[in-house]
Design a protein around this nucleic acid. Structure first.
Length: 583
RNA sequence: GCCUUCGUAGCUCAAUGGACAGAGCAGUAGCCUUCUAAGCUAUUGGUUGCGCGUUCGAGUCGCGCCGAAGGCACCA
């Protein structure tokens, strides 16, 4: 917004600078730090510092220049007042003019306000990446929520996004599960909650594996049958994998995430081995079998020292590894979709691995290798920086967390809206609970460890999703009560109160926030913005009466409430959090 | 040993290189005949781990320490 005004002022500045033989530095636009008035600020320090003829200290010179520029600035439509303060030129907007323009713009564009039309070659975001046959815990949650939000954010910023999921459907964990099933649960069928049923069998298998004498040997024997392609084992794998996928889809449905393309580890295993042979014959890889594995010594190839290290791409027994499959997977992604960019949402512990993969692909001659980006995020720990461990039983399962939070939310809903039908209560409780769970996972910077504790997770007050949801609900509530009243052409030429100006200003920042957050792949910026927007709306709500005000003000405030509602709903959508109708 | 990330109020976290470092939680004192109190108001709380640099200006950039976490050949 305000591009036109900025251009006009920039032109005047260029002239001002030319007249005084100043270095024509581009102006750096900033927001005004003061509340209650809306405008832009221009720091004059860079200009003053670059002036070779300055005789005063920079801050004083900056103030002098700012005063001179403020005095020389001609009348610009939409700017009501110009002031030089502490080395800044502060431009105050003509609030009636811009408020009207903004509110109308937001209401015209609705939930697309601040969005750009998707254009260009697609970007793929791989996220979630669970294993079949295993439980989901809060560690998976951060990946899911972060990845989902990054997709929404990129879409909002004008990218075509392909949501991808890479699922670990083979490996020791699957064998353990099947061995336990065959031995102790032969013939059993999954319950309605497939995810939980699958998880329980896995947890039991894992316990037997470490505690039960002889079980590990059984699993080994079972693995041999898998390697030998025993038809019974394959059949069981296909059946149980399908159960697991159904359970997983139930979870995604509940949590509100979707995928355009699902890749399976089993799908790229064979092509991975082909790639290894190709790498050996092309001389990039060294085949040390049978004693040693197949490796790529990146540091040796690149002449670097302890930087890229060594990648093992095939075990000495010829079986495949994670790295074996990553290579054909990357190729498949780019070839299938002609991607402009491929983003991997994977935790920070795999940074070296991702760096190695991109380098191998570059050495193989793929021109798109430089368009592979690892979105690294830190893990979720318990208070005291304790890492969750299934062995210690400290892992917080997604299932338990959702159930507990929903119960807690339900009791609040019952208390506050006792007349609602049971189903509505449950659906509100679920939306609040999921929001509360998601918000802490997304409001921290990607590179910071999230500390999970039950108390904060189940706290629906203060800096939290329910706070933001509640602000949206309040806005909707006002609009619902005003259902009979038609919102007409709003005018903001009355004396606007501070909360109104703050709210208008905050809403106006949304398009820039979306662009910045998308560029930096940081949904946390939107999460923080969402909270601030909600806080400012609550301030408005408490101080500015809407319904029952004199008609002109009521009309203007109703339009503003509608714009705020749109902005709040929009940021919640980007964060992957639902906004209930009632709370 | 090499590399990466983090260190801000008692706790959990914010803060485009820019004006006085802000919120929430916890504590204390208040506000429901008023558009929903999952809310609001007031109040307490800081040598931004330490040092040196770059800059007109550093929580933010660079270097060096200290502390925490993670990664570095057949786990994913």
């Amino acid at each position: 917004m305000f591009e036109h005004e900025k251009t006009l002022i920039q032109k005047e500045f260029d002239q001002f600078a030319a007249d005084r033989h100043l270095q024509q530095a581009l102006l750096g636009w900033r927001g005004l730090p003061f509340s209650g008035e809306w405008g832009l600020a221009l720091p004059f320090f860079p200009v003053a510092a670059a002036d070779p003829r300055k005789s005063l200290p920079v801050p004083l010179h900056a103030q002098n220049l700012a005063e001179a520029f403020a005095g020389s600035l001609s009348q610009i439509p939409g700017i009501s007042r110009v002031q030089a303060v502490k080395g800044y030129v502060n431009l105050y907007f003509s609030t009636p003019y811009f408020a009207k323009q903004l509110v109308e713009e937001v209401r015209r564009q609705g939930n697309r306000f601040g969005y750009n039309q998707p254009a260009g070659k697609p970007v793929m975001v791989e996220y979630s990446n669970p294993n079949t046959h295993k439980p989901l815990h809060v560690g998976h949650l951060r990946n899911m929520i972060l990845g989902g939000a990054v997709c929404n954010l990129l879409e909002a910023s004008g990218r075509n996004v392909i949501r991808a999921n890479y699922i670990g459907d083979i490996g020791l964990h699957v064998i353990k599960w099947m061995c336990n099933y065959e031995t102790y649960h032969q013939g059993e069928e999954p319950s309605a909650d497939k995810m939980r049923w699958m998880s329980d069998i896995y947890t039991e298998a894992d316990r037997r594996f470490s505690d039960e004498p002889g079980f590990e040997e059984k699993v080994r024997a079972y693995f041999s049958r898998w390697d030998a392609q025993d038809p019974d084992v394959i059949a069981l794998w296909e059946k149980t994998r399908a159960w697991s996928m159904e359970g997983m889809m139930q979870v995604y449905e509940l949590m509100g995430y979707r995928f355009d393309r699902i890749y399976f580890e089993s799908e790229v295993e064979d092509s991975g081995k082909d790639v290894v042979h190709h790498l050996i014959s092309s001389g990039l890889a060294q085949d040390g079998r049978p004693e040693n594995p197949v490796i790529i010594n990146l540091d040796e190839l690149l002449g670097t020292k302890e930087e890229y290290r060594v990648v093992v791409i095939l075990r000495s027994d010829g079986s495949s590894l994670y790295a074996t499959k990553e290579i054909p997977l990357a190729v498949m992604k780019f070839e299938e979709y002609g991607l402009a960019e491929s983003i991997y949402v994977i935790d920070v512990r795999q940074s070296l691995h991702m760096k190695q993969m991109a380098k191998v692909l570059e050495l193989m001659g793929y021109p798109w290798a430089s368009q592979i980006h690892h979105l690294a995020y830190e893990i979720v720990n318990l208070p005291g920086n304790v890492t969750m461990s299934s062995r210690d039983g400290t892992v917080v399962l997604l299932d338990d967390l959702v159930r507990e939070a929903t119960e807690r939310a339900l009791s609040v809903v019952r208390e506050k809206n006792p007349t609602l039908p049971q189903e509505s209560m449950l659906s509100i409780a679920r939306e609040v609970a999921l929001g509360a769970i998601k918000y802490p996972m997304i409001s921290r910077e990607n590179t910071k460890i999230v500390t999970f504790d039950w108390q904060t997770a189940l706290d629906f007050e203060g800096q939290s999703a329910p706070y933001i949801q509640y602000a949206a609900v309040r806005a909707k509530s006002i609009l619902r009560k005003a259902a009979g009243i038609e919102i007409k052409d709003p005018h903001y030429d009355y004396l606007l109160s501070t909360p109104e100006v703050n709210l208008i200003e905050k809403i106006s920042k949304l398009p820039d926030e979306i662009q910045r957050a998308a560029k930096e792949l940081k949904p946390s910026l939107i999460a923080v913005y969402a909270y601030e927007l909600a806080r400012i709306f609550n301030d408005f709500y408490n101080q500015c009466k809407v319904l029952g005000e004199e008609p002109k003000i009521q009309n203007a405030r109703l339009a503003l409430v509608d714009a705020a509602r749109i902005a709040l709903e929009e940021v919640l959508v980007i964060l992957g959090i639902k906004a209930p109708q009632l709370m």
